[in-house]
Design a protein around this nucleic acid. Structure first.
Lengths: 224, 224
DNA sequence: GATTGACTGATTGTCGGACAATCTCAGTGT
DNA sequence: ACACTGAGATTGTCCGACAATCAGTCAATC
């Protein structure tokens, strides 16, 4: 027998029914199929998804924990509706997390830095090929996620992901304000250049400005 | 009719069975009744708590979302066991959140600053009266929570609370290392004095040092 | 002797049904 | 205009059931 191989690259993901339901609901939320404020009736969902109410309940509970769905006891759950205060809060929070990542650029691992570069390149590619709005926002948020990931902290990354999920939900119902994609691409590239050059304080300032712009754009989605 | 009173202070919390179970489990975790790694069997818990398995399942699911309990699919749940890497990660994350609060001292609301002062005072009082270890850790973590609360961001506060919950769980099984409570009280008071004096960079440095000490202390709990 | 395969018991994941508690809302009565 | 009432809908909780999965044990095989 040839000495036992390791099989370290192999893996099977045991995807449970609840996971599939969560995934399907997230997809529907991010694609804008479900308007914010829409009630999520357990029996109706169970019926159309072909699963039991218990399973739907558990899946919805996870989305509630993620902040994508609001629950009022004894009244039901509904698609999370973002307020202006909520947007301001999200932006303040992401500013904290992303600047933490930018400040740690020098101390970050090479892989983490490469992820930022790759995310930026992927976004630029999508802008040129005129991808769909959902793909663009996903790629855009991936850049910012990679910034937080510069900290190398799994918990900070997990926190930031809940923020991006909320943003993505808000952006799903805002297909306008897409005209600034090209400027945003420049903003990201500029930020990355500053980072590569080691000009951290300028990079930080660039990020602050970029996020302020994002906040304005998001606020338009709730305040017409 | 006498002109209608306000009743603003009144409220009834519609406490569901799941909430009570969650609360009871948290208590048990924080008091150290349950060793890290202890499996949480659904039927056993349902039996001793006098509720159905569904309810236990939902409650445990919430604790999993909070990071207090680990779940391995098809294998079960167990009390979260903190690794050395986990502690390092938590401390990095709390450093980011708490420094964000400290940096925002000047811009914070008066109430938020008062909360910090009150928390510090309450902690000092407990140290003098030789309170129990659990009370001390609770008061201690409340100080740090109030620091993050200086940001005024509900989401950042919520994030920090999950961190403190994990820390509290780790501390529940570390009744030694309590000798440094007096030094810690000084550290907090010093930090607060620097803040009051507006010497923010020094305050920040003080916090960094204090958190490094906390990390060392926590690491002892996993690495004997 | 190590590996494989089959059996067993325990536990989880999912299902369906059931029922009380609670909310909503229209309707009724005063 | 106001309070009460009742029906319908929905959630919260419980129960019982069963397949799928996992951790052992133990025999069979090479």
């Amino acid at each position: 027998m040839p000495d036992s191989p390791s099989f370290e690259t192999l893996s099977v993901e045991p995807v449970s029914t609840v996971d599939r339901v969560v995934e399907e609901l997230r997809r529907a939320l991010f694609e804008g199929d479900l308007e914010p404020g829409t009630p999520l009736r357990e029996v109706a969902l169970a019926g159309s998804l072909g699963v039991s109410r218990s399973t739907v309940r558990e899946a919805v509970g996870m989305l509630v924990a993620d902040g994508l769905v609001d629950r009022i006891p004894n009244k039901g759950t509904s698609v999370h509706a973002l307020t202006a205060d909520g947007i301001r809060d999200i932006c303040r929070a992401r500013l904290v997390l992303e600047t933490a990542g930018v400040d740690g650029w020098a101390d970050a691992s090479d892989e983490a830095r490469d992820v930022v570069r790759a995310a930026n390149a992927a976004y630029g590619r999508l802008v040129r090929t005129k991808a769909s709005a959902q793909e663009l926002t996903a790629a855009h948020l991936e850049i910012h996620r990679s910034l937080t990931a510069l900290t190398g902290s799994p918990r900070l990354i997990a926190m930031s992901e809940t923020l991006y999920a909320e943003i993505r939900l808000a952006l799903a119902h805002l297909d306008r304000a897409r005209g600034n994609t090209r400027e945003q691409a420049h903003a990201h590239s500029d930020l990355l250049e500053l980072l590569e050059a080691g000009r951290l304080t300028e990079a930080r300032a660039s990020l602050v400005e970029h996020l302020a712009g994002a906040e304005r754009s998001l606020l338009e989605s709730v305040d017409p």
